[in-house]
Each structure stands twice: as structure tokens, then as C-alpha cells.
């Protein structure tokens, strides 16, 4: 069995491919390339290499169906989101998630509806803890 190398985070290109695969659920290199934004004009071999690297890093696993390799994500999208946020909090916000939330809320980029939604989530979580 091929030795897998540990990698925590995805590169920009890998994230693009993983996003396509998460949306598909499972698919071949051709399926993934078809889901990339238009005008991406990527060679099949380049796409196949990116998927091989993702397989090597343990983010996906492949099964051979006929002559085609079909890929499936090993890591769910929300799991990766969590990992990515943890890393961001650790590297940019002094390992204090509260700072990250403060920056997000203070930024002014959130609409009233989105803020209400966050308040509801917090109330729900705090309610869970009070019980």
C-alpha cells in the first residue's frame, strides 16, 4: 500500500478540486474538471495529477471502475471547514477563537439577517449549556 503523507490543509488548487468533488459526492477526473468554473481550460493530465496528489495526501480515496478512477472525499466539507478555522484561529488570532468572531462581527460585512441568525445560534448553544 502506498504511504500517505500527512497534510493538514489544502492548497488553493486542491481546494477548488475538493469543492467540486464535495458537490458531486463522487466522480472521475473528467466529472470534476466539468464542474470547475468556465474558462479554466485545464489539461486532463493536470487534473489527474491534482487528484493523485489529493489521494496521496489522504483527502480522497479512489476506486477503479472499468478503466476510470472514481474519487470520493475521505474528509467531509464541514470537517475541513472546522479544521481550516482552527488553523486560522491558531495562526492569525493568537489561538483565541473569540478574536476571530469579533473580527467577523465588527467587520460590518454582515447583514442584519445574518447577525440575527448568529444570535439565534448562540442563544441555542447557550440554552443547551444552561440546561
Amino acid at each position: 500500500m502506498r504511504k500517505r503523507r500527512a497534510a493538514n490543509l489544502l492548497t488553493e488548487v486542491e481546494l477548488e478540486f475538493m469543492t467540486a468533488l464535495w458537490a458531486l459526492g463522487r466522480g472521475s477526473v473528467r466529472d470534476i474538471l466539468d464542474r470547475l468554473p468556465e474558462g479554466r481550460a485545464l489539461a486532463y493530465t493536470s487534473g489527474a495529477t491534482v487528484m493523485r496528489i489529493l489521494d496521496d495526501k489522504g483527502f480522497v480515496e479512489s476506486t477503479k471502475e472499468g478503466n476510470v478512477l472514481v474519487y470520493e472525499p475521505v474528509l467531509a466539507k464541514d470537517e475541513y471547514q472546522k479544521r481550516s478555522l482552527e488553523n486560522l484561529s491558531k495562526t492569525l488570532f493568537d489561538d483565541t477563537p473569540a478574536n476571530l468572531v469579533v473580527r467577523l462581527v465588527d467587520d460590518g460585512g454582515l447583514s442584519d439577517e445574518e447577525l440575527e441568525e448568529i444570535r439565534a445560534i448562540l442563544n441555542r448553544r447557550l440554552g443547551d449549556h444552561d440546561r
Binding site: 488553493e12 488548487v13 477548488e16 479554466r40 481550460a41 485545464l42 489539461a43 493536470s46 495529477t49 491534482v50
Partner: peptide
């Protein structure tokens, strides 16, 4: 760099 894979002209 692995990112160069998707920039055909640079590759």
C-alpha cells in the same frame, strides 16, 4: 510549486 499545474503557460 504545485499551484503552477493549473497555470499552463507558466508551467
Amino acid at each position: 510549486p504545485s499551484g503552477v499545474l493549473v497555470r499552463t503557460a507558466d508551467l
